[in-house]
Amino acid sequence: MYGPVTAVKDLSLAVRRGEFLTILGPSGSGKTTALMLLAGFEAPTQGDILIAGKSIAAVPSYRRDQGIVFQSYALFPHLTVRRNLEFPLEMRGMNAAERASRVKRMLERVHLNEFGDRLPSQLSGGQQQRVALARALIADPPVLLLDEPLGALDRNLREQMQGEIKSLHREFGKTTICVTHDQEEALTLSDRIVVMRDGRIEQTGTPEALYDRPRTRFVAKFLGEANILENPAFPIEADTVQPSGTMAMIRPERIRVLTPAASRSADTDQRQSVTGIVDDMIYAGPQRKYTVRVGENVLIVREHVASGQPVFHSGDEVRLDWLRSDVRLVVA
């Protein structure tokens, strides 16, 4: 709790050994507080924290034997890369020869063997992130905690480092808990994702399950784009009966945009079609994004750019269709 505010409520979560689990949520959802509790920088007012069956709730952070990577990297600015990596080993009483050997291997692993004598200020953002990851892993901790690890990098570097983090996770097999608000990062890196909202867990599952089968409107909208068909101007055809209190949802990439006179596909009996008017088209490299007005509803459609396909513009009449099996039902 922070004064009268309860930052995390009724949080119950088990993390499997060797799993990469991401806690995802918007600002104020409680995700960072959850990580701070695991790291020992905050103490729970109720409940317990167990690692391998042993309580660590009362154990100070410096005795928890965890590797931590912060968004700001938190490298020692006055120490070289080599000394930054040596520091956690020195604190554990490792002898000089073993320290030097382990640092050498780790520098080679993160492709920084030529940068050992540089200061952090002499490195790029991606190189600093590699040093931070190497320092967190070098002492062989049972648990690795990542706090918005790629938030300070530009898009290209983020994608590059996502691949590096996945590679390191496969190689070292560490139980990893990552906190982020970046949906793409969570989908790319995780074995499982925990979506948090207002201090509670909204839904937990694999990236595929959460994206394809969200249970709530919040998860559907937060984890990618979603067309929520609330009080639609047309009847919804789905493979299951729609219970009271639910809304239909369909992902933009599941919808096809066609000319009204386009021939019907062989699986037309499994599809629903509606007609609408294009409000806008945005070209985004490999994709086109359409917003299409159907009665009082506006649907988002994303299609991959391919040669020979028609391109629609504002004011064009189009036909939208989708498989009934791609319709999902979510609660508010």
Rank of each mutant, 00 (worst) to 15 (best):
F172E: 09
R319N: 07
L229H: 12
R17W: 04
L153A: 11
P286D: 11
A233L: 08
P26G: 07
V219T: 09
M1I: 14
H78P: 08
L329S: 11
F172D: 05
F41L: 13
G295R: 14
F20E: 02
I56A: 08
R16M: 10
Q242D: 05
P149W: 12
R135F: 01
G308Q: 07
H78A: 08
F41S: 05
P44A: 05
T80P: 05
P4D: 10
T32K: 02
M247Y: 14
E208N: 11
V110D: 01
F76M: 02
E317F: 03
R302G: 00
V8A: 04
V331M: 13
V298G: 06
S314Q: 15
V131T: 04
E86C: 07
N156W: 04
R251V: 01
G28M: 11
V318K: 00
W322T: 00
I255N: 12
E303Q: 14
E184I: 06
L89F: 06
R102F: 06
S121P: 06
L119T: 09
E184C: 00
V69S: 02
T206Q: 05
V5W: 13
A266V: 07
T188R: 05
D154S: 09
A52G: 14
P252I: 07
A220E: 04
S124I: 04
I193G: 00
G125D: 06
N156T: 13
E208W: 10
Q272E: 06
P252K: 12
H313Y: 15
L75D: 00
D198Y: 09
R200Q: 12
R135V: 01
L75N: 00
D316H: 06
E108Y: 15
L229M: 13
F218G: 01
D182Q: 13
K9Q: 14
V278S: 03
A14L: 05
G30K: 02
R256K: 14
R64V: 02
N113K: 15
G173Y: 10
Q242H: 13
R288F: 06
E42V: 08
G47L: 04
A14Y: 14
N156C: 05
L223R: 05
I68P: 04
T33N: 04
W322H: 08
G47T: 11
R251N: 01
Q287Y: 15
A43Y: 13
M249N: 01
T6C: 09
A134E: 00
D48W: 11
S263Q: 14
Q66D: 03
A152R: 10
V81E: 08
R99V: 12
L85M: 10
R264Y: 10
K54G: 03
L146V: 08
P149Y: 14
G151I: 01
G163K: 12
L168E: 08
G3E: 12
P141N: 07
L258P: 10
G67M: 03
M36V: 03
E303N: 14
M91Q: 15
I51H: 12
S314R: 14
I177H: 02
G151M: 08
L137V: 08
R217N: 04
R264P: 00
T176H: 02
I177M: 01
R64K: 10
A220Y: 07
L150A: 09
R105D: 15
A100R: 15
V278L: 11
T22H: 04
Y290G: 06
V278C: 11
L210Q: 03
A186S: 10
T180G: 01
S265I: 11
Q66R: 12
H181T: 05
M196E: 09
I49N: 03
R256S: 12
L137I: 13
T240E: 13
T175L: 05
L150H: 12
V331A: 12
P214H: 06
R271Y: 00
